[in-house]
Design a protein around this nucleic acid. Sequence first.
DNA 1: CCTAATTGGTTTAATAATAAATTAGTTTAT
DNA 2: ATAAACTAATTTATTATTAAACCAATTAGG
Lengths: 135, 135
Amino acid sequence: MGKIDITKVWTLNYRLVVSVIGEVAPALHELGIEVKELFLLAELDAHPHPAALAETLCMPKPSVTVYVKRLEAAELVKREIDNADLRRHKLSLTSEGRKVMTGGLALLAEAFGQRLAHLTATQQAELKSLLEKLS
Amino acid sequence: MGKIDITKVWTLNYRLVVSVIGEVAPALHELGIEVKELFLLAELDAHPHPAALAETLCMPKPSVTVYVKRLEAAELVKREIDNADLRRHKLSLTSEGRKVMTGGLALLAEAFGQRLAHLTATQQAELKSLLEKLS
DNA sequence: CCTAATTGGTTTAATAATAAATTAGTTTAT
DNA sequence: ATAAACTAATTTATTATTAAACCAATTAGG
């Protein structure tokens, strides 16, 4: 069992990710959101404050500001002051926002699922387990 | 063996990718290149024409134009007319460009390798094999 | 209590990325 | 030959992203 080529593994995975994103982007655009906005919506329940979203999504805070502004203008996200800490903005999905998030994740799952379909159920579970160990 | 949650697998993997990129970006910047420029350099031997790079890297052609211009200005890439098809630009790494590419990939391998180190050699090989099936 | 240091978020100013239109060269079919 | 269709790459004009500087609220230490 020789050492694996790290760069090769990286490249395989990176291409997988960018190609799925490229595939899904036009359909998301129909839904009215950008790819990163979907990722933000998807994390909103778990991380309802801009700073936490920036941290989780590995993006700069000003980017979160911009996305949240747009999503708020589109009435997919609601912003309130957090009474526990008046600096914070407590974000939440509107019901329309939740619908768009669900629909967007379905599109993503469809595109990524087409790739995963090349694996057996056991292999899919194995992949998930390996990725969990990498976190 | 129930069905796996596709979105969960996606999220695990997406975060892995963006966090490795975020980790490597500052070091690459020291080297004088951006992350995507490294990916472009790394594909240059295999795909020496802009259109092929755009296709392989899933990026629009004008982006390739911009990156190649910068890399050429930095003397990391050389551009020639392809005598077999005069519309084409045949790109190649300069010796400095190859050095930078090698150094950049080493930084990437270091960062990604730290994650992979959470897996045994067998698991790493398994991951590689699964990703190959997904291509 | 104050003041300094931190944290949360935004704004501004600048750079990065890209869609749409364009130019240059090639191929195909008369 | 030559017009039409096609392919490679670039340019232009616009939008997206972000670093740096900022303001407001909070917390920690005298």
